[in-house]
Computed example of a mutant assay.
Amino acid sequence: MSSEDFIAMLEADLGWRKKEVANLLLMETEQNQLLIIKSTVLLLYSHWEGFVKNATKAYLEHISDMRVDIGALTDNFKAISLKGLIGQVDKSHESLTMVNELNLINKLQNNLNRKFSLPRGFSRHERDKTIVNTKDNLSLKVFKSILNIVGIDYAGSLDTKSVFIDEKLLENRNKVAHGNRIEQIDAEFNLDLIELKKLKDLVFFLMSALVDDLIYYAEQELYFSENEDKMKSYLQQRAKEIEGYLP
């Protein structure tokens, strides 16, 4: 995937999702308000999980397609490349010999000279959860862990958003998705239209921020370990912007 294709994919994927949620909210009337709220919560969560998964997997595939030495990349890519090797040793933990462990040491030493590589079409394998796993319940904690996988770390600034993501989005989405009977907005389903629109703005703000981050990382080559100082400076700036956004 070229840089141009990667950027176009991110922008197009985010664009249609924003439009779909906006169109659903336009259908709201006084008579169908609760139905639209419940439907929008389901749709908004679907786009939240789907986009984060698609965008981060596409970024990893973009780096893979560049055929860069693992040793030249930041630590998150080194960690990804080690997953399979460590798994091999874990499977043999009952062995009475040290053969597998010694083989692992040799592989680790040689690993840095290999190219970072993911399976062809990695980003399009919907069920592949080996690296990016939303756990089918993309909480703030899971989101932060996925950011770390692609090398983004402004996690602390996201903690102030936990009420909206974990409670307003996930809890209410789960109540609707699990077939609970909801006939009014109350303590069991505490999301009115005003809060829903704030939630929608926050979710799409985080998704847009992810687009900006991944594009900046790609264009400025922040995946190279030699650019880590530049990456840290960028992340400090982004942390302030994220923390300053109030839904």
Rank of each mutant, 00 (worst) to 15 (best):
G87I: 05
G71N: 04
K38Y: 05
F116H: 04
S139R: 13
H125F: 13
P119N: 09
F122N: 03
L96N: 08
K115N: 13
V41P: 01
N148A: 04
H47I: 07
L104V: 04
I86W: 08
Q88I: 08
F51V: 03
L102V: 12
S81H: 06
Y45G: 00
L43I: 08
D128W: 09
F143H: 06
N110M: 14
S64K: 03
K141E: 14
L60M: 12
L140H: 07
H62P: 00
S92C: 04
D128C: 07
E101C: 14
S139F: 05
N54F: 14
L112K: 15
S39M: 10
S39P: 09
E94G: 04
N137V: 02
N54M: 12
F116V: 00
T56F: 04
I86H: 12
L147C: 09
Q88G: 11
L35P: 05
I36H: 12
H125S: 07
F143K: 01
K91L: 13
F122A: 06
I36Y: 13
I146G: 02
L60C: 02
K91Q: 13
H47V: 05
D65L: 11
F143Y: 15
Q88S: 11
I70P: 00
T56Y: 01
L42C: 10
F77H: 06
S139I: 04
K91W: 04
T74F: 02
K115H: 14
G121P: 07
R127E: 04
I80L: 10
L102C: 05
L118H: 09
G71Q: 04
I63P: 01
S39G: 15
F116Q: 02
T97Q: 08
N113D: 11
S64T: 03
L104C: 03
I146L: 05
D65K: 15
F77K: 00
K144S: 08
N148W: 11
H125E: 11
N103A: 06
K144F: 02
G71W: 06
S139N: 09
M66L: 10
H62S: 01
T134P: 03
L138T: 02
D69Q: 15
E126I: 12
T97K: 10
L102N: 13
T134D: 04
S64A: 08
P119C: 12
S64Y: 05
L118F: 12
H93T: 06
G50I: 11
E94Y: 14
V132N: 00
I37N: 03
K135Q: 11
G87D: 09
I146C: 00
V132F: 00
H62W: 05
V52L: 01
I105V: 10
K53H: 10
L82D: 06
F51A: 02
V150G: 00
N137E: 09
F51T: 01
N148H: 15
F51G: 03
T40G: 02
A55G: 02
S139Q: 06
L42T: 14
L140Y: 06
W48V: 06
H47E: 06
L147R: 03
K78M: 10
L108F: 15
S145V: 12
S145G: 05
E101G: 09
H125Q: 14
N110I: 09
G121Q: 10
L42G: 01
